[in-house]
C-alpha cells in the first residue's frame, strides 16, 4: 500500500482550517506548519484569480530527504509509504531540508512560546513534554490517527471536503479514481521525486 493525498482545488476555499487543525493535532511550535495554505494571484486585473494552495510534505516515492539523511532518521514506513522522521535518530544536521525541493521540513532548535515571555501555555507545555528540540519536523500524514483507523486531521476537518487520503497503489481506490478522472497533478514533477500529494484542478 502507498498512501497518497488528493487535494481538490475546486473545493478548497482557503479557510486555513487544515493549517490550524494540523497545529491542534500536533501542537507544532511557532513558525512550524506541517501543512499550510499558500495564496497566489494568477492573471491580471480583471481576469485574475486568487488561488489557495494547501501544501505540506509530498511523501515522495523517491524521497531525497530520506536518501540524504546520514543517520537514518528520515525513513519510509513499509506499510504505507509514509515518509517520517525518528526524532531519536535525528541529529539536526538539516541535510534533509537542503534536499527537499518543497521546503516543507522545519528545524526546531529551541523552545519558542506563542505568548512570548509569559512562557508556555498549558497546551504548549503538554506538547513540549512530548516533543524533542534540535530535530527536524514535518507532516507524517497523521500516522498515529491512521493506525487508529482515522483520517489525518487535515482531511477529517476540512469543511470543504477538499482533502482525500487513500491507497494510490490500488487503481480502484477513491484517490486513484479522482486523480484519473479529474487530471490530478503533482507539484514540481520535474524534480523527479515522485510526490504522493496530488492536486485536482480548480
Amino acid at each position: 500500500m502507498r498512501l497518497a493525498m488528493v487535494i481538490d482545488l475546486k473545493r478548497c476555499v482557503g479557510c486555513y482550517g487544515c493549517q490550524i487543525a494540523c497545529k491542534a493535532e500536533h501542537g507544532t511550535p511557532p513558525g512550524v506548519f506541517n501543512t499550510r495554505v499558500v495564496k497566489q494571484e494568477i492573471g491580471e486585473y480583471p481576469t485574475v484569480n486568487l488561488v489557495s494552495l494547501p501544501v505540506g510534505c509530498n511523501h515522495c516515492s523517491d524521497a531525497p530527504c530520506v536518501a540524504s539523511c546520514p543517520t537514518g532518521a528520515s525513513f519510509v514506513w513499509e506499510d504505507s509509504g509514509i515518509v517520517d522522521i525518528d526524532p531519536d535518530k535525528c541529529v539536526g544536521c538539516r541535510s534533509c531540508m537542503m534536499a527537499c525541493p518543497y521546503s516543507n521540513r522545519y528545524f526546531v532548535s529551541e523552545r519558542l512560546d506563542y505568548y512570548g515571555d509569559k512562557g508556555p501555555t498549558i497546551i504548549e507545555a503538554y506538547w513540549n513534554a512530548k516533543t524533542q528540540l534540535g530535530v527536524v519536523r514535518k507532516c507524517n500524514f497523521c500516522r498515529d490517527r491512521i493506525m487508529e483507523g482515522k483520517e489525518p486531521a487535515c482531511v477529517a476537518n476540512c469543511p470543504a471536503i477538499a482533502r482525500h487520503i487513500g491507497d494510490i497503489s490500488d487503481p480502484t481506490s477513491e484517490v486513484s479514481r479522482l486523480i484519473k478522472e479529474r487530471g490530478g497533478f503533482t507539484l514540481q514533477p520535474e524534480k523527479g521525486t515522485g510526490p504522493n500529494v496530488y492536486y485536482l484542478p480548480a
Binding site: 523517491d62 524521497a63 531525497p64 536518501a67 537514518g72 513499509e78
Partner: peptide, 12 residues
C-alpha cells in the same frame, strides 16, 4: 532510493 524502510511495529 528508499535507504531506510521501517516495519510498523518499530515505533510502538
Amino acid at each position: 532510493m528508499n535507504t531506510t524502510v521501517r516495519q510498523s511495529t518499530a515505533s510502538v
